[in-house]
Nucleic acid binder design. Structure first.
Length: 105
DNA sequence: CGATTGACTTCTC
DNA sequence: CGAGAAGCCAATC
């Protein structure tokens, strides 16, 4: 595991309950502004081994990107349970979250 | 060890 | 606005 991967994991683990981050945000904070895709990949492969809150990570539009229907349903259910507002499978609190995490930049 | 592959983003038109 | 293309880079083949 390299530095970037390690930082990504740490950041994901630091996401507060009921909040979310985008792949791009994580990539930027971790030090590689253009590694959004890798964040996705890392998240996907590491979540199983590191028990990461993968459901708190969404794409730039605040939508669920995951393809698998069952996992998508689980993600949505988990987020709603944490108090995240959902509108037509779209999470609207993403901007608020970005504001909260400006300290990382 | 080169080639391929994405749970993405951003810019252009 | 939507569609298309390019860029990025770790993991997997």
């Amino acid at each position: 595991m390299n530095d970037f991967t390690k930082r990504v994991v740490e950041i994901i683990q630091s996401i507060p309950k009921g909040k979310m981050m985008t792949y791009g945000q994580i990539a930027r904070i971790a030090g590689n502004p253009r590694a959004a895709r890798q964040v996705a990949r890392i998240l996907h492969s590491m979540s199983q081994k590191y028990n990461l809150p993968w459901h708190r990570v969404v794409n730039a539009k605040g939508e669920i990107v995951i393809k698998d229907d069952e996992s998508r349903f689980v993600q949505r259910a988990l987020l709603e349970k944490e108090g995240v507002t959902v509108k037509n499978e779209r999470y609207v609190s993403i901007d608020e979250y970005r504001y909260d995490y400006q300290k990382f930049e």
